[in-house]
């Protein structure tokens, strides 16, 4: 649960945060405070959510320490990559559709959801104009978590909307699990058998945190040039060597 109230005074926000902390603690639900690390600290919230124009991630991390959750709104894959590189715990991806919560903002459409699903390794939450009627298309595009505001608080039966959204997410998760082995690949990396959900060689290298290293990739016995990494999909049984230079005579 995220507390977001752009119009409340700081004192008012603090009061709401306290109440929400009590409530969420009772149900074991993580509480994220929008924009205000100080309030998050004051009420013992689980984390903060930052916008692109808010406090830089590094600074928020210094304030909040290593344990608290920090999420960032992103509106394109470049921002998503940066957030991931800077150590965000999750990102928001949106607004997917036009939304009353953020009027006038151009939607990023489902294609950005697909991009994020293919590349981003930290959790991402699709947000913006998502309702029980269109949520399938968002899940179809690869989202596994969604955030809804207007669809829930603007409905006479908020609990009912939540249940319907949850039911759709669970259905997609179940389908994902049953088709799981097809999506994950069993490959041999440096002599070790590895089960990975990386789609390409580039993603695999990124998952090991090695993209910025000087290394050479061998793919099934032949050198794979760096510019080929992104274009080479992983396949079951592939033998991959990630090598570099070490001291030797």
């Amino acid at each position: 649960m995220q507390l977001r109230d752009k119009n409340a005074s700081k004192a008012g926000l603090l009061e709401k945060a306290k109440q929400l902390r009590e409530l969420t603690a009772r149900y074991g639900v993580p509480l994220i405070i929008n924009d205000h690390p100080d309030i998050a600290i004051a009420v013992g919230a689980d984390g903060v959510h930052l916008g692109q124009d808010d406090m830089p991630l590094g600074e928020a991390r210094r304030l909040l320490g290593p344990e608290r959750i920090i999420g960032i709104s992103t509106h394109n894959i470049g921002q998503a990559r940066l957030a991931q590189a800077e150590g965000a715990d999750y990102i928001g991806v949106g607004p997917v559709f036009p939304t009353g919560t953020k009027p006038g903002r151009t939607p990023v459409t489902l294609s950005y959801v697909s991009e994020a699903a293919a590349e981003i390794r930290i959790p991402f939450v699709a947000i913006g104009g998502i309702t029980p009627d269109n949520v399938d298309s968002v899940l179809e595009a690869g989202a596994r978590r969604i955030c809804a505001v207007s669809a829930i608080v603007g409905n006479a039966d908020p609990a009912g909307v939540c249940r319907r959204l949850l039911e759709r997410i669970s259905r997609y998760e179940a389908a994902r699990e049953s088709s799981g082995p097809a999506k994950s690949c069993e490959v041999t990396v440096n002599g070790r058998s590895v089960l990975t959900d990386a789609g390409t060689v580039a993603e695999l290298v990124a998952q090991y945190g090695l993209l910025d290293r000087k290394l050479v990739v061998e793919w099934n016995g032949a050198v794979l040039a760096r510019h080929e990494w992104e274009k080479t999909p992983l396949e079951n049984g592939a033998v991959i060597e990630l090598v570099h230079f070490v001291g030797g005579g």
């Binding site: 290394l215 990630l242 090598v243 570099h244 070490v246 001291g247 030797g248 005579g249």
Partner: peptide, 19 residues
């Protein structure tokens, strides 16, 4: 100078590359 080609140690984040 000479050096050797070896597998990257996937269990260590430390960069032991000689270059």
């Amino acid at each position: 100078i000479t050096f050797a080609v070896r597998r990257v140690n996937l269990d260590s984040v430390e960069d032991d590359s000689v270059l």
